[in-house]
Structures are given as structure tokens and as C-alpha cells.
Amino acid sequence: MKNIIEIIISTMTSQNIALVYILGMCPLIAISTNVKNAKGMGIAVVFVVTLTGIINWPIYELLKTTGTTNLSLLVFIITIAATVQFLEMFLAKFSPKLYNSFGIYLPLITVNCVVLAVSIFFVNRDYNFIETAAFSFGSSVGWMLAIVLLAGIRQKISKNSYLPKGLSGKAIAFIILGILSLAFIGFTGLSIF
């Protein structure tokens, strides 16, 4: 249990997939213009990344037993696309209100590199099923934390008339991400136990 909590906390802070590994930047920059959009995208990413990590682990174990692990990247991509498509159909059928609230964010997750990176990371780290589920959940929550923090700061800064014109928009987002990255790397080495 101690290892699981450490995996979740470290993937949200010192091993944050967005701020330390610099993955998922396209949606992070594009969607983070306001907090509402950032929360919607973040929730969708948490759900999809956790679900695909849990689905991809047994698939990879099956590939290991058959000696076809060189196909894992292709299989992971197909699994991610199928999971997002299935989730989209399921929500449209059984929860139209939730489906409409996700809007365009759900299909966009298919091309978010964070989803594939989590599957590659659990393979490289040789995690078991529970560790993979914890890693997938923690990584996605860490990504959501990064996008919501970025959106909140960008929203606050956009109301400031003192910001030079050359730093508005994406330029200030990159500066904010750099500062947030430094702050999150500062969590390295801390232990809750």
C-alpha cells in the first residue's frame, strides 16, 4: 500500500507527466485559456488515461507470453483509439448530459501523447497491475493539475493590462509552464513515509 501511495503522489508532483516529462503540451497550451475548459479536458484525461492503462496492462502481459512485445506500441494505439471511441458511444447512449459536457475534449484525447506515454512508462518500469492503475491515475491527475493551474494563472494574467503585447497568449503560457516545472521538480526527494 505504501508503494501505491508513493506512486500516486510522485506522479502528481515530482514526476508530473506534463511539467517534468513535458508531455501533452499541445492540449495543455491550447485548452488552458480558461479554467472551465481546463477542468473539462482534465476530467476526460483522468478517465481515459486510467482506463487505458488498466486495459493495456493485461494486453501487454499477453503479448509477453506470446513473445510479440514488439507489437505493443501498435496495440496500445489501437486500444487507446478503441477505448476513447467506446467511451464516447457509451456516454452518448447512457449519459447524454455528461457526453455533451465533455464536448470536443473526449475525441481530442485519442491524440494526446500522455495516454500513450503512460502505457509505455508502465512497461519500462515493469509495474504490476495495481502499480499500473495507480501510475495511470496519478499521472492523469497530475496532468489535470497542471492544466488547471496553467489556466487559472493565464486567466488571472489576461485581466492584467500591464503585460507586454509580445508576452500575451502562448508566449506567457510557456513562461508559466517553465516556472511551474521548476516548482514541481522541487518536490523531488520528498517522502511522506
Rank of each mutant, 00 (worst) to 15 (best):
L108W: 10
L108M: 12
L108Q: 04
L108R: 01
T110G: 02
T110S: 06
V111I: 14
V111C: 07
N112R: 03
N112M: 07
N112Q: 07
C113H: 11
V115H: 06
L116D: 04
L116V: 15
L116P: 02
L116G: 06
L116E: 06
A117I: 12
A117Y: 15
V118I: 12
V118M: 06
S119C: 14
S119M: 11
I120S: 01
I120H: 03
I120K: 03
I120M: 09
F121W: 08
F122D: 00
F122I: 04
V123W: 12
V123E: 06
V123L: 08
N124C: 12
R125M: 13
R125K: 13
R125I: 10
D126T: 11
D126Y: 15
D126R: 09
D126P: 05
Y127N: 05
N128Y: 10
N128L: 10
F129N: 05
F129W: 15
F129S: 07
F129A: 09
I130L: 15
I130M: 14
E131C: 09
E131H: 10
E131Y: 10
A133R: 05
A133Y: 14
A133H: 13
A133T: 11
A133K: 06
A134E: 12
A134S: 11
F135R: 00
F135M: 05
S136L: 03
S136E: 07
F137W: 06
F137I: 01
F137L: 01
G138Y: 13
S139H: 10
S139I: 12
S139K: 03
S139Y: 13
S139R: 02
S139P: 08
S140T: 08
S140M: 06
V141N: 05
V141G: 05
V141A: 07
G142K: 06
G142A: 08
G142C: 06
W143K: 00
W143G: 00
M144S: 10
M144L: 11
M144H: 11
L145E: 08
L145G: 08
A146W: 13
A146D: 05
A146Y: 13
A146F: 12
A146V: 08
A146N: 04
A146R: 02
I147V: 11
I147N: 01
I147A: 02
V148E: 03
V148F: 14
V148G: 01
L149G: 00
L149N: 00
L149E: 03
L149Q: 01
L150V: 09
A151L: 07
A151M: 07
A151P: 04
A151Q: 05
A151H: 11
A151E: 08
A151W: 14
G152Q: 05
G152K: 01
G152C: 06
G152P: 09
I153M: 04
I153C: 01
I153F: 12
I153P: 01
I153E: 04
R154V: 14
R154Y: 15
